[in-house]
Design a protein around this nucleic acid. Sequence first.
DNA 1: CTGTTAGCGCTTTCAA
DNA 2: TTGAAAGCGCTAACAG
Lengths: 350, 350
Amino acid sequence: MKPKKPELRLLKTGSGDMPVSGATLIDVARMAGVSPITVSRALNQPQLVRPNTLAKVQAAIEESGYVKNMLAGGLAQSRSKLVSVVMPNVANPIFADMVQAASDTLTAAGYQVLLGLSGYETWREELLVETILSRRPDGVILTGTLHTDSTRHRLQKSGIPVVETWDMTPAPIDMVIGFSHEEVGRAVAGHVIERGYHRIAILSMDDGRAARRRQGLQVALAKHGLSVIATEIMPGSATLQLGRAGTARLLDAHPDIDVIVASSDTLAHGALIEAATRGLPVPQRLAVIGFGDQNFAAHVQPPLSTVRVDGSKIGNLAARAILQRLDPQPGVSIQPVTDTGFELVQRAST
Amino acid sequence: MKPKKPELRLLKTGSGDMPVSGATLIDVARMAGVSPITVSRALNQPQLVRPNTLAKVQAAIEESGYVKNMLAGGLAQSRSKLVSVVMPNVANPIFADMVQAASDTLTAAGYQVLLGLSGYETWREELLVETILSRRPDGVILTGTLHTDSTRHRLQKSGIPVVETWDMTPAPIDMVIGFSHEEVGRAVAGHVIERGYHRIAILSMDDGRAARRRQGLQVALAKHGLSVIATEIMPGSATLQLGRAGTARLLDAHPDIDVIVASSDTLAHGALIEAATRGLPVPQRLAVIGFGDQNFAAHVQPPLSTVRVDGSKIGNLAARAILQRLDPQPGVSIQPVTDTGFELVQRAST
DNA sequence: CTGTTAGCGCTTTCAA
DNA sequence: TTGAAAGCGCTAACAG
């Protein structure tokens, strides 16, 4: 057992040498001739510190190259200023839009984004969420409303604000910002029926939300005595190639298909290319309907009909919902459960 | 001054009640009838703990719903298990590919990604890097090699591994994984010259790396007595619309342009659409060259020539470079400075 | 294999 | 307006 000399550390750390690696708040305090807590205040609540003192502290900070340690700060305050955004991947532009918007909004409010890419399996998400919670984020934004029980419980017990996105659910973990995928399917069905298509095919990714849209579509079609004549479910993540390949398979098996309902604009775009290659006029001979739309559908050739959803809007709303919970702004109000809506965008002649 | 009773806290925290919010390591320790450090070991170095003890600890963890606190752990160990990935945005697919790959690699190694979206101005990046450093990440992956002096110094002083990406530089902060944009420009020039194009236009974003490519292109062209007859620099971030609009401006002013060199595939795609709208056969009447390529160029109609770079590869290499520094693997070796190369992909007839 | 002690760097009471 | 003391929850460094 050695002698207890707390001052010893101070002397060691601050010895006249260069500030080799990291200056601490205590170092800054000593340089400025004030107590550590004063430096802390100068940093976090400058209005509580006399301008004179403030100046001394700031000089010391400059000179020492001090960088705040949020690990220590977060531990002491139980506030990490971290918000985690969890989604399957960032390759899909609608997710990229979501993180981008969430990040912008959160950064502006002094938070940082802990990125969690979960893939499409809930057990992966479960592992990820556990790791994420160990960082004590101040909020979590999830994609979708389908999670393991364990994920739901852990998040609920954590007591931090949680937003589920891109979908609706009667039993949210906490807050929800999304829309009904079944309803999207129904809307597409309405459009298909109205246009009089009969030979309907689905080109879709292996993804739960896409499945819900297919479901909504098929149920609504059935009510009108229509059914889907072929379905192609692609594994992995959507690419133009997959869209082409899937379309080729569909058309090879059923040359008389008159409309392809794709689960994403990327697949739909692939379908357009395949159609062009085969010399099938779109939409006269073969109509193609997409989903997603990054102001995209109207600009490819030929233009697509698509269901337009706005990842930026969802990301922004989700971030604002979290922020509103963290420090409530009297003026602002965000519905805990919000339907951001979707929009069926038709090309002139589809 | 109150009596010092450290035991008091223990009694308070662990009072027979429900584990209301967060159980701590100490709570778990008491439940398992061991010391805190044993729990810590059970979690981090299970092989050092007798199976019997381990079981008791695990039971206690289950029962208490304990979640590790990495803020505390990180503070104690000075290792946050966090790596920050900084890039202008995540909307550009090549950047999305980069984060995705970096995240995959880092997650597999037990690290998490702190996302930093910096925009295209170095002063924004500077602010961001400062905030990021306050989280004490174990590594930082930057985009580009153009940074403020302050950014460079702070990072260098921090002593953590840093990788700059997407570019080469004679004076790296630490490590570099990228390629020369001037050289890309030169390669494009070679292609243009070889094909005999004379009426050369540039369609580009307002971005430093794009500028370097333009520079390389123009210098190389000049050596062959060629010059660019028109340049359109678009603000903001690349979209199909911008590509169309820019192309329209170029063609309106110079109807005889025979090749457009675009700074991204998105812009190039926009150019294709505009060309199609005007009935200009590509590439017979107007050739279009892109940059980026997410296996994209070959699949749009008509196909593009493009300079292919691989965001995934860069992200993966960058992550591995960081990891290799954090705990060196004898077998593995990654060049501190690596040229990932690029590839000029030609369509058959361009 | 397990425990004791002493912090990591910051912020929270309270007090001055 | 400033300071002293006591922790936040965890782990390193030694013991035993």
